[in-house]
Amino acid sequence: MTPSERPVLLVTGSRKGIGRYLAEHYLKKGYFVEGCSRGDGDIGDPSYHHHHVDVADEKAVRGMVADITKRHGRIDVVLNNAAIASMNHVLLTPAKSANRMLEVNVTGTMLVCRDAAKVMMRRRYGRIVNFTTIVAPIALAGEAVYAASKSAVVTFTRILAFELGQWGITCNSFGATPIMTDMIRGVPQDKIDAVVNGLAIKRLGTPEDCANVCDFFIHPASDNITGQVIYLGGVT
């Protein structure tokens, strides 16, 4: 098919939280936005299409990307935001919970990157942003497996940048500071305060912070920015 004239952006985990904010942010900027989550989406914009997909399900991801390609003929941007966290002391973390985090956060990110990159490489253009977290570099106790899965995402993304660079696809990671979404709503306030107090900029993150970094990474002029990771709040 002839590719759509407007750019197409896929954001995973778009039903709520940061993913939803980013979906709406890029709809306002004129993108066709394709979103996915394990539940139904309710963004009513005609330029938005929701896929009921678990990113850890290889066949489902393949089907979603095929459907996007069939309708638009292109994928310009992927924001791999979907993730799960289970905040537990490692001594109390069941294997099932650990495996599920690795499946969604690592394998799921890989599957979406893999299938979207196959579409991007034919047009020799693509922007991939994989979401990580500051809890990995700050080694936050109580999030060992979640942080490990997000460290894997950073390493995966750095190498992906080298594997896909020749086809004009950039791959970067972005780690937000705590943002008041469902993912951290169960975390005790004193623990969140301790993290925020350890930052250079002592405040919670916002969805606007995330959009700002994504805007930079996905800008067409950022074609020489790849394999990088940006953390908010002064974390390195």
Binding site: M1, R62, A66, T69, K70, K118, V119, Q166
Partner: peptide, 24 residues
């Protein structure tokens, strides 16, 4: 080896376009 990677991807994409089948 990279040419083979490109070839496999190209075949997958053409299968989708011409036959509507999505294969890995």
């Amino acid at each position: 080896s990279l040419g083979v990677v490109q070839l496999i991807v190209e075949v997958e994409q053409r299968l989708e376009e011409t036959h509507g089948v999505s294969l890995t």
